[in-house]
Design a protein around this nucleic acid. Structure first.
Lengths: 155, 155
DNA sequence: TTACGTGCAAATAATTTGCAGTCCC
DNA sequence: GGGACTGCAAATTATTTGCACGTAA
């Protein structure tokens, strides 16, 4: 889509903070993980797809391979440092804040927006089927642009 | 995973019903769409991935191509006849009941289970960002097996 | 040292598309 | 008859994996 890469350097989390996050998750502080962590944890309310993160880290001056980004995202996810958000676009997005909150999803742009945890309250959560336990409740509020190019559906 | 294809013929919705559903959506009643519709609309609480549906239709005796399944699912979705459900597995699942309800998602099996609409109530839905309107609210309650093979996480 | 990580390129998986031929209205 | 639909195979896109090499503990 875009030929020119905007070389805005993304904000970076302090190295020592990332180190201790990794240590807490029993993950070796390799150069690549540190670089990914510095970008990921700079803003606790970010949503990234693997490709975006890859681009940001490379722009930040640390070369690494895309495969490593995928692998590391999976590890961070398994460690509970970040969270995968399911959308209906083909690609996964990762949420840098693991806390309790939900999302708006702008369909046309494949973009996520945080909804603070207390804003939505779920009453009467159903009991899980026998033999299962609830590990998470994800609420996705799907949005579309008003008066989007095209036609508007009558209510 | 499974080498033998169990040739259980799936239940089929009546042809006339599928015809009128298609007519209502302004879609031509072609042989392939009818066959897909008969399988899809036989049970209003089914969840299928494209490949599963493809297999079921072929088993029901109507040959068609996988590409047509994908294309048709997209068309049915756009027409509001079915609904795509986002999960974190790579593949999309389609829900044959378009009505208001939510889902349990068994992560280990990539399987969806309906939660009736009134079972979950959402209070205080947040206002959408300016210029956007809410088109749907999807709640996904993620489940994992209790005492799954492996280890259990302490609470 | 030594198991754990990483890069690369190739493999997979799910889905979409181009185009020639077929079918419904 | 003519545009809508389908099949096929090839293209795309997102992600994973195998294996030789590098690096933190």
């Amino acid at each position: 889509m875009q030929t020119m890469i905007p070389a805005r350097a993304p904000a970076l989390a302090p190295l020592c903070e990332v180190r201790s996050i990794l240590k807490g998750a029993c993950l070796r502080p390799t150069r690549q993980r540190l670089a990914l962590g510095r970008v990921l944890f700079a803003d606790r309310h970010r949503h990234v797809a693997a490709e975006d993160l890859f681009r940001d880290v490379v722009v930040s001056g640390e070369p690494l391979s895309l495969a490593t980004v995928y692998n590391t995202l999976r590890q961070f996810c398994a460690a509970g440092l970040i969270r995968e958000v399911a959308t209906q676009s083909g690609r996964s997005q990762y949420d840098t804040s693991a806390g309790d909150h939900h999302h708006f999803y702008v369909e046309d742009e494949d973009r996520l927006i945080d909804i603070p945890g207390e804003t939505i309250r779920l009453d009467r959560l159903p009991a899980p089927p026998a033999g299962h336990r609830i590990v998470a409740v994800d609420v996705l509020v799907r949005l579309r642009r008003v008066s989007a190019p095209g036609r508007e559906v009558a209510p």
